[in-house]
């Protein structure tokens, strides 16, 4: 589905990601864990095509096509999606305007409107948040739910959730987790977390541990519990 080969990423002069190799398979759920500053968000933003992160070496392939030089909008059109760790507020633009433009020629605006309403009710997002400027005046949990809602309407193939479980209360997290489970089918998920809170609700097929920009360990879901007990350092040294 998505593969990373010898990936090395720099911001300015600083190397953040080094020598990452991994192949994400279709229909599976992956958890990416690691301490703060280990490069998890950088990896997510690099896959999505943030202009600040330069690929120094290696390649990213989506279904066999190299996407290193594609802009973020083209990557999204190929089926990539990133749920941001801290979604930014966009004044004067509501979620419908955004999705209508993103899906122009693909989905009928009326259909988009219906889906937004449907998913907002499933995710328990208050109506005024749907009509208001995106993420403006929304709580941490509400912002994360709005990210999930966008994912649901956009129907991407490869979804990265960057700390979807932080700043979210237990109820909201359950709702988000249930929602992700329900919409698994043919999709591939990469859940970035450093608590593993969300992993109590969604059992990952594989857990990847990242430290200092490298993937140092890969295991099954039990690895997440070991980390909770022992911490990263003991486990990985």
């Amino acid at each position: 589905m998505l593969s990373l080969t010898n990936l090395k990423v720099k911001v300015g002069e600083k190397v953040i990601i080094n020598n990452v190799n991994f192949n994400f398979e279709k229909g599976k759920v992956y958890a990416l864990m690691g301490p703060n500053g280990s490069g998890k968000s950088t990896l997510a933003l690099t896959i999505m095509g943030h202009p600040q992160y330069q690929i120094e070496n290696g390649k990213i392939e989506m279904e066999g096509v190299e996407i290193n030089n594609l802009s973020a909008d083209k990557r999204a059109q190929l089926g990539l999606f990133l749920s941001f760790q801290t979604p930014i507020a966009v004044s004067g633009v509501n979620v419908f305007q955004l999705l209508r433009l993103a899906l122009s020629g693909k989905k009928d605006p009326l259909e988009i409107k219906k889906e937004i309403e449907k998913y907002a009710s499933v995710l328990k997002i208050p109506n005024e948040l749907i009509n208001r400027s995106l993420n403006e005046g929304a709580s941490g949990g509400e912002k994360k739910k709005l990210e999930v809602l966008q994912a649901a309407v956009l129907e991407p193939k490869f979804l990265i959730f960057d700390e979807v479980d932080t700043g979210v209360d237990v109820d909201a997290m359950k709702v988000i987790a249930q929602f992700i489970k329900k919409h698994k089918k043919d999709k591939t998920y990469l859940l970035i977390t450093h608590y593993n809170r969300i992993l109590r609700y969604i059992k990952p097929d594989k857990v990847l541990i990242m430290i200092d920009g490298e993937i140092v360990k890969v295991g099954d879901y039990k690895l997440a519990y070991q980390i909770e007990k022992k911490g990263y350092e003991k486990l990985c040294i």
Binding site: D73, I88, L99, L103
Partner: peptide, 12 residues
Amino acid sequence: EEKLFYLTSRGI
């Protein structure tokens, strides 16, 4: 730039 990236990452 961050707002632009956010919107383009949705396919715009």
